[in-house]
Design a protein around this nucleic acid. Structure first.
Lengths: 341, 341
DNA sequence: CTGAAAGCGCTTACAG
DNA sequence: CTGAAAGCGCTTACAG
């Protein structure tokens, strides 16, 4: 493997000159620049990442801390991962994918060994044990998911309260007066899935303001349990004309459930979910939905992180960015057949 | 951040002694070992990964080259990724997830900069452009997916021919004499998805031997097209009593299709797929299947890679390991209602 | 505009 | 059993 020393020798200049010619960090006569470039081409020189990391104290790697939880619907995670890794690459960083069960330990390990320049945390819970470790770390971090205390961290998340309100308003606006909201399982909530109740509470509140009845349930996050759950909820509220889903597994299971009940959407039941467009395509879901904006959130988190890593911005105030919900209209919401008044 | 020099100073020994005490690479009196350990604890010392990489020429990182193709069914990939990353961690390696569109360039970049110690390639095609680059690389690589020319590389894949034969035999064994096989889309085949025809050819051959009619089709790899395709295939062969699926999207779409046709499995139609158990759970699929063994293949690839990386085994012959198919019986194959003779 | 030198934080032959 | 020193391959103040 060629080193910068080899390049310098072939080009007939000093190592520092070769280095500067390549980095452009000081002015170099074009003649020398050319000699260096020729030497690089001839030798096929590429800088050694470890040596550069040691000299610059920058690894150009970010760690992506994912959590693959058994009670979670995995396909929904892939898009966050892609958003992060693609944007990172565009900005000159590689992505270390970390899926260890013990998140805090992994974070500590990568931080103290200086393997990475920063962290993106996925699936952040209400009181996430990784956050304290992250706050102590020498490297900055960005979160996808809003914790109770975002102090000292950049946070990116969908605006779940606004999403809840939007979902209710969509139903109410076309005449629905009784609906069901199916959230993720209580497991998820207990583990700190704050977004679940943040959406649910806001939806409830908005429904009350508008004088709409909203029945709220926690549904399983896995098949086939969620199917049974959906049947139960629908049985219990035969008058409900609308169904809101903040639960990906429920959305995936619904077409089957509806067919089993010989109910069709939106003729008999208006349906509005919260999932990504990619998810809808994968599962061929014909339901309108608030876009979970996974790619966007992943990209935003990386951008903020990179700014902070490169930053004179150490002291910049941290941001909590809640993405306003947008609606993917797939035509599954219409006026109820027999509108209550 | 504490360095090995700090540890040495606090422990009152030389840096080399501190280093050896920690690595255990030469014998150290227990008294000294304790002093060093105490210093480490006191300072919270962790070795700097970049410095270590430079000194040892080992980064303890492996690159996982995935390809997220738009015409591919993404959920099926996650388990390979988890298999690789979990096993790597168990063996002391971290995983760099690489999803760049230009695979050969990414591989070259990571190889020449010495960012990683080895490569795992996912989704390897018949004549994959990444392979030549990999063969030139200084680091070893393991493939998941069998290319036309596996020369110089360790390969792990499901035994697709055996899988095809097994699938046919399962149907034939209980009396089926006419069946349909739905493969992945021709796109996938054209891109080099050799496993598609390897399974199909073997299935065809075995069917001929057994005197069973097998109608082979390529189906779309995405929803909702695959649903339409399935209807078409079933319409065309009303006598077929069995359905074999080597196409994850088809498996995911089938429950809906069957319900639309008011056909039930296995009473009216025996169904046998090829997908992972995790996939079956996610989509709540009630179909028996040849397990695609994603986790296992991921783990095996990493193990082989690590052996080779640490190896005096540079010269060891390369392996092509084809995993014998195993069946997850979910009860969707039984004797046909009206067996042809 | 260019060079000689120090330093990043480790590991490991070499010497005792 | 332990230490002093060289070296891994870069970058970047310091000097000219």
């Amino acid at each position: 493997m060629a080193t910068i020393g080899d390049v310098a020798r072939v080009a007939g200049v000093s190592r520092s000159t070769a280095s500067y010619a390549l980095s452009g960090k000081r002015s170099i006569s074009s003649a020398v620049r050319k000699k260096v470039q020729d030497a690089v081409d001839e030798l096929g020189y590429t800088p050694n990442a470890g040596a550069r990391a040691l000299a610059t104290a920058e690894t150009k790697i970010i760690a992506l801390l994912a959590r693959f939880l058994s009670d979670e619907f995995a396909p929904a995670m892939l898009q966050y991962i892609q958003g992060v890794s693609n944007r990172a690459r565009e900005l000159g960083y590689d992505t270390l994918l970390v899926s260890e069960a013990d998140g805090p330990a992994a974070l500590r390990r990568l931080s103290t060994t200086r393997m990475v320049d920063g962290f993106v945390l996925l699936n952040v819970g209400e009181s996430d044990e990784r956050l304290d470790v992250l706050r102590q770390a020498a490297q900055p971090g960005a979160l996808i998911g809003l914790p109770a205390d975002p102090e000292g961290l950049d946070v990116f998340d969908l605006d779940f309260p606004a999403s809840g309100r939007l979902m209710v308003e969509q139903l109410h606006g076309v005449g629905h007066r009784e609906a069901i909201l199916v959230s993720q399982s209580e497991h998820v909530v207990r583990r700190g899935g704050a977004y679940v109740w943040r959406l649910a509470n806001a939806a409830q509140e908005r429904a009350e303001e508008l004088g709409m009845q909203l029945h709220h349930y926690y549904g399983a996050s896995l098949q086939p349990e969620i199917g049974t759950d959906l049947h139960r909820f629908l049985d219990r509220h035969p008058q409900a004309t609308g169904l809101l889903l903040n639960n990906e597994a429920a959305a995936a299971a619904l077409p089957t459930v509806l067919r089993e009940r010989e109910v069709s959407a939106p003729a008999d039941l208006s349906v509005l979910g919260r999932f990504s467009d990619e998810f809808a395509r994968t599962f061929s879901l014909p339901f309108s939905a608030v876009d979970s904006a996974a790619m966007t959130l992943g990209r935003q988190a990386v951008e903020a992180l990179v700014t902070r890593m490169q930053g004179s911005t150490k002291a910049e105030p941290h941001v909590v960015s809640l993405l306003p919900p947008t609606l993917d209209d797939r035509g599954s919401v219409t006026a109820p057949r027999a509108p209550s008044r």
